[in-house]
Amino acid sequence: MAITGEHESLTGAEIGLSEADPRDYFELLKPRVMSLVVFTAFVGLIMAPGSIHPFFGAVAILCIAVGAGASGALNMWYDADIDAIMSRTSRRPIPDGRVTRSEALIFGLVLSAFSVMTLGLLVNWVASALLAFTIFFYAVVYTMWLKRSTPQNIVIGGAAGAFPPMIGWASVTGSISWDSVVLFLIIFLWTPPHFWALALFKQSDYGNAGVPMMPNVAGVRSTQKQILAYALVTAIVGVLPYFMGFAGLAYGLLAAGLGVGFVWYAIQVYRMDADDKLMKPAKAMFAYSLIYLFGLFAMLLIDSALTRFGVWA
């Protein structure tokens, strides 16, 4: 059916009558990214010295999750044009026609405002300011500025994904400490090898969309070298919590073991032929990088919980 005036005829879709389901809006929040954010923020919150009422701890995690989701929605609003081109993102709600760009923008802005204000009012304003900065950094600095202009996009933009444990920590202490900076650094340094491994086997996708990822700009060989360099530094920083005394020996041993694995996978990527079509080592590195980060933070959580309950000294 159409709306007909004297000179025009519009369909329901053209006048913006939505068929979007709540699930489509939920998809705008990038739930899988959100789950990693929730997990690392929770670890930061548990590890922080001091205490927080469990209810406000849950509120803090909820706000961090919603804030991260909001930045995901803002990212999908801005990147809808390139999302439509890449196979990995073409089924997202906006390119798929389920949600309009303006709906995603309003949704992202409203959730950003609510998450930041609620965290500030109910928990503390340091954590709230960090969350606001994280959303700004991801939506504006990374998405609008860096992503389409430099191959260093995910190196600098990775900071946005690294802030959640600091926000969790600040929710308890109301401050930033060197310990929380190390948690930030682990994720910050882990991000480039993680994403460049993906960029290696999705090179044509990024190339078609005009996103200047490292393999497309500097070449496969240079990316392989940089992945190895970042993996080495990540593995070293990964064991710092033990040497700085805020994680136990069990964590130190696991982090060292997982770090050796991370470097080993990076070496396999380094030795991969640049013309390799299957790029199996890059795919394996990408999968292992997720296990690596999850393993580290899971062990930090276990270590911290057992120490707190007096099981470990």
């Binding site: 059916m1 159409a2 709306i3």
Partner: peptide
């Protein structure tokens, strides 16, 4: 006047 389709009515209700 534009009449909402069943799908549009259902999705609006769920939202």
């Amino acid at each position: 006047l534009y009449e909402l389709t069943t799908k549009q009515k259902k999705s609006r209700r769920r939202r």
